[in-house]
Design a protein around this nucleic acid. Structure first.
Lengths: 229, 229
DNA sequence: TATTATCTACAACAAACGTTGTATTTTACA
DNA sequence: TGTAAAATACAACGTTTGTTGTAGATAATA
């Protein structure tokens, strides 16, 4: 039996629909703790460089007993992604963005929410870029599907903005992807970005995105038009 | 002796200044081959998920004999970074960018060169983001120093552009970092970017950067001024 | 209190890993 | 052709790794 196969086995099905659903409060709390602590370790040291024994030490749960709460190391990573991408997907509805009229305000709301998700300033998203390849195809697909969903919501906002002549964008798909990508600048280039406070950075980033969607330009244009009348 | 310590030992000093410098053509060719093949594997599977035996298979060099050409697995990664960052650092001089007058053209030259480095469209730079943490502090620092050098060159161009009223930028350091970061969009989000050809992408990216530095805006402004006279 | 379900402690396993030792073959040069 | 250096082949070592087995403790329920 190869390691990969053994990994798939696991001792106790934890997140699958299992006979005796582990829904006890303690259980879920412990599992959440594992996920949180592990995500911190993964961010700091990398997935492969973090051993189950490290996670055991960080959580205070014995190495072997970790497998009472999770199926495998791989599953921890998946659960981390799951945990931080679910709320990401729900921003649009939760903030009732479709009810906002001004596309620029829609975009601002979306961006701010995405930035502050998890309170870690996008550090978790960095994991997706860095470690997603360790997940099996199946899981990776479902994660990517969520990502795409958010992207297409952003794209929707951009299109609306173009229709209302507030934005000026050549390729909405490209720009939506770029905006999503830019949100991780802080996390990805921490070594250079640390000089900015979170507030400074957020401000700079939003100004930047404003340029990207051509918002300022359009406003000016509209202003010129009106004054020309 | 721990693994980490053993890793530091190595069998034959390969890149250090060693008594009998391995400068034979064959030797260097083999070493280069290892670096190239390994970088492909690292990009595809990740550093930790690529074993020395994988590299052996890819290069056709026996596992043990790999250590005749390189000191350690870690060194391979370092050499990869070294290989792709050295030319990056030399762009400015090689292209004689300081002799170009128009800042926008300066920037365009720089960007295009950076994009096409290695011919892999930035795929190697993705490694820096993903795997740099496995390097020891010392090496990491030297890599980052190079990065910063390129960034400051970009920043120089931006400042010149501002002085000449061609660019409009709030924080040159932020923007320089952002531009550098944006160059890796294709590599980092391949799964969504594959729909574009390299030409399409390059075009979109350049237009995007144009907006970011406020180039279009300024031109229009200048034009307006002149027509107002 | 008896019984079951939940949780824990600790040791162990088998595989994979980076790396080394060594003996042998090939090449370069005199 | 002879000799040293360069390069190869192959087996092995010592660790670390993710994971499991199992026996015992604790908590909940009756």
């Amino acid at each position: 039996m190869t390691r990969r196969e053994r990994q798939a086995t696991g001792r106790t099905p934890s997140c699958d629909a299992c006979a005796t659903a582990k829904t006890s409060a303690v259980f879920q709390k412990r599992q959440l703790n594992i996920i949180k602590k592990a995500s911190k370790l993964f961010i700091k040291k990398g997935y492969a460089q973090t051993s189950m024994r490290d996670i055991a030490k960080a959580t205070g749960i014995d190495v072997g007993n970790l497998y009472y709460f999770i199926k495998s190391k791989e599953e921890i990573l998946y659960l981390i992604f799951d945990m931080f991408h679910k709320p990401e997907e729900e921003i649009f509805e939760r903030c009732e963005i479709s009810k906002i009229e001004d596309p620029l305000e829609q975009l601002r709301t979306m961006v701010m929410e995405l930035i502050n998700l998890g309170g870690n300033f996008g550090l978790e998203i960095l994991l997706l870029y860095r470690e997603s390849r360790v997940l099996p195809r199946e899981n990776l697909k479902s994660i990517m599907a969520r990502e795409s969903h958010v992207i297409s919501q952003i794209e929707g906002i951009l299109k609306k903005g173009i229709r209302e002549k507030v934005f000026k964008i050549k390729d909405t798909s490209f720009t939506a992807n770029m905006i999503m990508y830019e949100l991780s600048l802080y996390a990805m280039r921490r070594w250079n970005m640390k000089r900015y406070t979170k507030e400074e950075f957020t401000d700079l980033l939003w100004k930047h995105i404003g340029k990207v969607v051509g918002a300022g330009e359009m406003k000016k244009a509209r202003f010129v038009k009106r004054s020309a009348k």
